[in-house]
Design a protein around this nucleic acid. Structure first.
Lengths: 252, 252
DNA sequence: CGTATCAAACAGGTTTCGTGTTTGAAATGT
DNA sequence: ACATTTCAAACACGAAACCTGTTTGATACG
């Protein structure tokens, strides 16, 4: 996993100053310039940065969501704990809709060997679940957003509107009692709302860090959630505020 | 690709006599019994055969469709030629629905770098198309059938019913003038019909071998097709019969 | 026109994967 | 109950794939 670390190093360096030269990056990572060029080519392909002659500039604007490929390796343990905790809350035979995002992908993986009906809202989760023998996999229609592979659009909303689930597992980009559940992407926000409307019980999952964050698109007030599963280092005041809004907060 | 060939050898041997012992297969492939056991484990996982102590028995019944993993490596060149021929028939800007199956997967791959709106009817094709920069990818809902990953069911039909395409690329398990277009799977047949109904032009793709075959589920008469693209070793009489039904036959 | 940057090709090193062997455990048959 | 067969796990070996650095000739920029 040496190359992955270097990629992250490059991304961070480029984001820090907006742009970096190939020579700088080669020095920083103590590799050859050729390796840096190959890395930049890969990262540019993923849309993480823009290549120009002699270097690269960042495409990650402040306040924007970092891309899936990066978030996937962040806080793995916390996500794992959250995922198993959520899996324990779901009973065999239930029909579950699982939102897009890395935390929800973890939940999907934790449900692989269960006997359930599952509708994932991203192709990442769908791919993780195909072939699961006891699982009934139901895919919504829609347009997969590049990278994230989250399904959005009228087809997705129509698919959700046609179904009723026992539980919705919703990810979020920001969540707190005052601003409610928020997302970076407007289309995503609409889908989250639709998924919540189609489910009897709503479980929100989020790393502790997101409790102090608020994203662009408002999805729903905290009171619309039944359970929030988050990390064990979630601040007490936020947890209390959510509890006061009638939400069951589970820190794992 | 040595192991792939051995797997095929094993499958063929097992299907030939219904079942084979581990010792027999080890001798036949001139490998160790341990390797055979590992192979059988893999193949059993794919649902290609059933393991029992000392050997394995075939699960491929006569007249049933061989699984995706096997067909994928069959007649690669013919499929490639068909795929490029179909791609040439499609103009930039069109909206295209692409059926499931290995031949259609080839067509999807051939369209990767085009400027089109594409709705694939299988997750295999969907995965091949995500990340294509100029492509607008539209996914139908539905339940992915294991292995094939073909999307079927009411959600799929609803997605298709809501849209109108310029071209439908349809695969088939059997096709000839007298029995029309046929498929192995009933649910698949319904989807093919829905896709054809939603498209202005219908292109059927099929290896030449399938022109002399007829599968269980009737989809549509040959006259419902506008173009058939097939291999260059397609028999003249079948091609003529299709032409007589008003279909343009393209042999590549 | 000179310099910097780049992409392709080659070579070395490392890692991963597949295979074979061994060993002890489990299952089957007598 | 015992002997035999079958199996799975562990280890070791070799081949293939991958990553990286260097070289070289081409291309872009000032």
């Amino acid at each position: 996993m040496a190359s992955v670390d270097r990629h992250r190093q490059i991304i961070d360096a480029v984001r820090q100053t907006g742009q970096r030269s190939v020579v700088e990056l080669a020095e920083l990572t103590s590799t050859s310039e050729m390796t840096i060029r190959r890395d930049l080519e890969i990262l540019a392909e993923q849309g993480l940065l823009e290549r120009y002659r002699g270097g690269a500039r960042s495409l990650l604007l402040r306040g924007e969501e970092p891309p899936f490929a990066l978030r996937e390796h962040d806080g793995l343990q916390e996500k794992q704990r959250i995922a198993t905790a959520v899996a324990d809350m779901i009973a065999d035979g239930e029909a579950v809709v699982i939102d897009s995002g890395t935390t929800c992908l973890g939940v999907a993986r934790a449900l692989t060997h269960r006997r359930l009906t599952v509708m994932p809202l991203s192709l990442h989760a769908a791919n993780a679940l195909v072939g699961a023998p006891r699982l009934r996999l139901l895919l919504p229609g829609g347009e997969p957003r590049p990278g994230e592979l989250a399904l959005t659009g009228p087809l997705t909303e129509a698919s959700l509107a046609a179904l009723r689930f026992d539980t919705a597992v919703i990810g979020c980009c920001g969540l707190n009692a005052s601003n409610g559940l928020t997302a970076y992407d407007l289309a995503d926000a609409a889908i989250k709302r639709a998924a919540m409307a189609s489910a009897h019980r709503v479980i929100a999952v989020t790393e502790a860090a997101k409790l102090s964050r608020t994203a662009l698109a408002f999805v729903a007030p905290a009171s619309a959630l039944h359970v929030v599963v988050t990390g064990d280092d979630a601040p007490d005041d936020e947890a209390d505020a959510l509890s006061a809004a009638g939400v069951v907060v589970r820190r794992v």
